[in-house]
Measured scan of single mutants.
Amino acid sequence: MSYSVTLTGPGPWGFRLQGGKDFNMPLTISRITPGSKAAQSQLSQGDLVVAIDGVNTDTMTHLEAQNKIKSASYNLSLTLQKS
């Protein structure tokens, strides 16, 4: 079951990613910084990142996902799936 979260910026957003197409692993939330915008939302460590700002992550490399997140200036919309 997927869910959506919109973090209001600017960054830093307070989470780290792992995985990506180049690692043959789905993009997942690997760490959440305590007290951060991510920590105050529904994000959980281990959640799968399905889309970033409406763009499906199935074919994204780790770097492409990082760049997509960094390019979000004020709002960052994520679609996630609980692990």
Score class of each variant (00 low, 15 high):
G46F: 04
G54S: 06
L17K: 00
S77D: 09
S83K: 08
V50N: 06
Y74I: 12
W13C: 04
L80W: 02
S36C: 04
D58G: 09
N67R: 09
S73F: 09
K68W: 06
T57E: 00
L63H: 15
L80F: 05
Q66V: 15
T61C: 06
W13P: 03
Q18H: 08
S41V: 07
S36H: 03
A38V: 04
A39Y: 08
K21P: 04
S83D: 08
W13K: 04
S41I: 05
A39Q: 11
Q81R: 15
D58I: 08
G9S: 06
H62I: 14
Q42N: 11
G54H: 06
G19T: 02
S2K: 05
I69V: 13
P34L: 07
P12F: 04
R16D: 12
S41L: 08
N75Y: 08
Q45Y: 07
G35I: 04
V5N: 02
A72T: 15
Q40S: 11
I32P: 03
K82V: 15
M1G: 07
K70F: 07
L7T: 01
T8S: 08
S4V: 07
Y74R: 15
P10I: 09
V50P: 02
M60V: 03
I69W: 02
K70Q: 11
F15E: 00
K21S: 11
S30R: 11
K21I: 10
V55C: 14
K37Y: 07
L7S: 01
T6S: 09
D47T: 04
N56S: 12
S36D: 03
Q66K: 14
M25G: 09
G14L: 01
D22C: 04
G54W: 03
H62A: 10
L27S: 02
I52A: 01
N56D: 14
K37E: 11
A72C: 07
G9N: 04
T59C: 11
G46E: 04
G20D: 03
L27A: 04
K82W: 05
L78A: 01
T59S: 11
M1I: 15
Q81A: 13
S2R: 09
S4T: 13
G14P: 02
V5R: 03
T28L: 07
G14F: 00
P12S: 07
P26N: 03
G11N: 05
K21C: 13
I29E: 00
L17V: 12
S73D: 15
A72D: 12
A39S: 13
G19Y: 03
Q45K: 14
M60E: 01
